[in-house]
Amino acid sequence: MPATPVVEAEPRKRWLSVLAKAKPAEVAAAWDGLAQQPGYRVLRAPEIGMVMVRGRAGGTGDAFNVGEMTVTRAAVRLETGVTGIGYVAGRDRRHAEIAAVVDAMMQSPDLRPLAEGIVDPLETAQLQRRDAAARKAAATKVDFFTMVRTRGPAA
């Protein structure tokens, strides 16, 4: 059984982020639309838990605990032996499991093109949503103008 190939952290961070930020329904639809789904075994069944979110005093100072967020995690192993993990905000078990499978696929050279067919459109959708929000925000930017005031004669 081949060991899990060593994938650099940076590209992996990118697709794990995309998978986590995607809407559960989008992820499920993309998975269901896959021409060929690889076989896999669940190493860690999707588990719902929490992560404590932290902020910084004044935005930049010492850390403090703000409150928790729900998170679901899962781990899978493809038939090829490559393992993948999913850590996604919320309580959607299927979202976490699919994210883990896609993570493993992205690490497998032969399955990667198939997985990119899921990750890339999800990223595009996120960028489009972000862009739309940024355009709406820009439309609410205040244009200051100075009123021309005529002063009366000095009293």
Binding site: V51, M52, G55, E68, A133, A134, T140
Partner: peptide
């Protein structure tokens, strides 16, 4: 929330990097 396990602590959020939808300063125009 008491019924759920805790996976751990997140790294502090970077609010300076926020994708801002609203940002005003009443002190500094």
């Amino acid at each position: 929330r008491t019924t759920l396990p805790r996976f751990g602590y997140a790294q502090p959020v970077e609010t300076a990097a926020m994708a801002v939808r609203r940002r005003i300063s009443a002190a500094f125009k």
